[in-house]
């Protein structure tokens, strides 16, 4: 699931740095919320489709990646049609569809490391306000990305083991061992992170000291 990340390529979007892409996406998404005209929204949808295609992804690949959001959008459109009216349904589907396509284009053209760096920069203002530690917050997010495949794998292994004991349907039998392992692992993980010299030299302050 999370493997549907960046795809290497040489398109214009691939060569654009992460920050302007994310900013552009945010601006486009916000702007679309002030547009209700169907013609304009349809044009935006087609343009977004063209942007998504410009990354080198085929229509089939885009369809595969966006299947989940498409289902949600379809259900929503239907609900709006039934409960409000057809015009609202068309507006919502075109608007959210265009945004989903643009977001997808940014996602497939940006590497995780780049995203992490942008994140750290985004956290800086919050750090200045004393809300968080940007370096630590960025590492936490990167760690989560690193561990998703491992936890998914662990969950599958636990499910198989429980199935052998006749507990395949039990959510408790899956989640309890998963949580216990996570708590135990966090201790070893913290040791390893500290052993590797974290936090970085320039970021060391009295509040960073462990325990």
């Amino acid at each position: 699931m999370i493997a549907a990340l960046a795809r290497p390529g040489t398109s214009a979007l691939h060569r654009t740095p992460a920050a302007p892409k994310l900013l552009g996406l945010a601006v486009a998404a916000t702007a679309l919320f002030f547009v209700d005209h169907h013609g304009l929204l349809a044009a935006a949808f087609v343009a977004a489709l063209a942007v998504a295609r410009s990354t080198g992804a085929s229509f089939a690949a885009i369809g595969r990646d966006l299947r989940g959001p498409a289902v949600v959008l379809a259900v929503l459109g239907l609900a709006d049609w039934v409960m409000v009216d057809r015009a609202t349904a068309v507006t919502v589907v075109l608007r959210l569809g265009a945004i989903a396509l643009l977001a997808h284009a940014v996602t497939v053209t940006t590497s995780t490391a780049e995203l992490g760096e942008v994140l750290e920069r985004l956290f800086r203002p919050a750090e200045r306000l004393g809300l968080l530690d940007a370096t630590r917050a960025a590492l936490t997010v990167t760690l989560a990305i690193r561990f998703v495949p491992l936890i998914v794998e662990e969950a599958r292994a636990i499910r198989e083991a429980q199935a052998a004991r006749g507990l395949e349907g039990s959510i408790v039998a899956l989640v309890v061992p998963l949580m216990v392992r996570v708590i135990v692992r966090s201790e070893a993980l913290a040791d390893a992170i500290d052993a590797r010299g974290f936090p970085p030299e320039h970021a060391v302050s009295s509040t960073n000291e462990r325990r």
């Binding site: 995780t112 590492l139 990167t142 690193r146 993980l189 010299g197 974290f198 320039h202």
Partner: peptide, 20 residues
């Protein structure tokens, strides 16, 4: 438990970055 970054190259850089 020791590897903290999603890619091999990024992980090797982790300790080096920490030490400036």
């Amino acid at each position: 438990n020791q590897i903290v970054m999603p890619l091999v190259g990024e992980d090797l850089a982790f300790g080096l970055k920490n030490h400036g």
